[in-house]
Write a protein that binds this DNA or RNA. Structure first.
Lengths: 191, 191
DNA sequence: CATAAAGATGAATGCTGATTCAGGATAGAT
DNA sequence: ATCTATCCTGAATCAGCATTCATCTTTATG
């Protein structure tokens, strides 16, 4: 196969602007924003969107992918902290809280993800996140803090239900209500 | 105000057919089914839908309302059972499970409800359900089974996050993970 | 610079789906 | 049986949106 010609500088620039604008628009108005609006936000014409992403689904997938990548980074950082002595259960809880906030910022990323069904996506990032969370779980289990039968899938399950549409007091409360199911301890009065 | 003329018999009949068909279609294909499809399922022309419900939103709202009414009935039945000696915490848990299944059957009712924002709806049924759940909670608290700071809102919050799109093993698992946050006991090995 | 290839533009197209409304059918009162 | 207020029908209208494409620009190569 012949070496693919290097992309032009402006094309690279535009691709970034589009990705960023799409992220912003989807965050602000949900995955149903029009392509025209995304294009406008990116300071580009619709046609350009299509040059970079053959279809709207592809664009949304790219945005979701970026989000997944960010989550993976966060999870790996948490693992690093545990290696450095932090308590795994605490890191996991904090991670959950952060991911929720991230998802709120990137509002509707969840909806967007769902609107894609089980599309490909950069499987690599998903795996990266999965491995990190698994590490967190087994470390927590070792400490006796995390319920022995909890798996990554449970974490995914819980996450996929986070109330990102709810206003803030609710999201924190939700986390409080959900954590006991993952740990070995019942909720205390002070929670 | 003059007494409103009684509606014609066929109009009453059609309204029922429409409501039922709309429920079925929404359950089967989500709240995005076309009005034409609902009309077809009801054996009626589109125009008729509009005679009964000025807008699609109104129709969906009516369907959601019916669902809420059913949930309220279920909750009241649970309260009755508690009065007859059943353990409140168990009834509450079972109720949660049933509502999830109900929501799965009436699939996308949740999505439909969300697509309405905080629309009016038959406030009466909502209150009815609220009162029943409150009764269940305080009874459970009395028994010392339900965490003292749990409120109806917590129940709503949890519910609004039920993973009704997930296939069955997941829904049951979710319930298992979520219950400990409501009760005073940590999860046991056998859960 | 001159030129070709790559990229950008945005009006036009096509589709989907809600909503309307002029005309035809019915229920039910007299 | 007649009559009219209700109710129904469904083709037509309208609007929103993704996607296309003929045409114009810009980049980068020699």
């Amino acid at each position: 196969m012949g070496q693919a010609r290097a992309p032009r500088a402006d094309a690279v620039r535009n691709r970034k602007k589009i990705l960023s604008a799409a992220g912003g628009q989807i965050a602000a108005h949900g995955p149903d924003v029009g392509m025209e609006e995304i294009a406008a936000a990116a300071g580009v014409a619709v046609g350009t969107l299509y040059r970079h992403f053959p279809t709207k689904t592809d664009l949304v997938a790219a945005v979701v992918g970026a989000h997944v990548s960010r989550v993976a980074d966060d999870a790996e950082a948490a693992v690093g902290r545990v290696a450095a002595g932090a308590r795994a259960a605490d890191e996991l809880t904090a991670f959950l809280g952060r991911v929720i906030e991230l998802s709120v910022t990137d509002r509707a990323v969840k909806a967007a993800a769902q609107s894609l069904g089980a599309e490909p996506g950069d499987r690599a990032d998903e795996d990266r996140a999965g491995r990190a969370v698994t590490a967190l779980i087994s470390a927590g289990r070792q400490d006796g803090d995390i319920h022995p039968d909890i798996t990554v899938n449970d974490i995914y399950l819980i996450f996929s239900t986070a109330p990102i549409d709810q206003p803030e007091p609710a999201r924190a409360r939700w986390l409080t209500l959900v954590i006991p199911g993952l740990t070995t301890r019942a909720r205390q009065e002070g929670d």
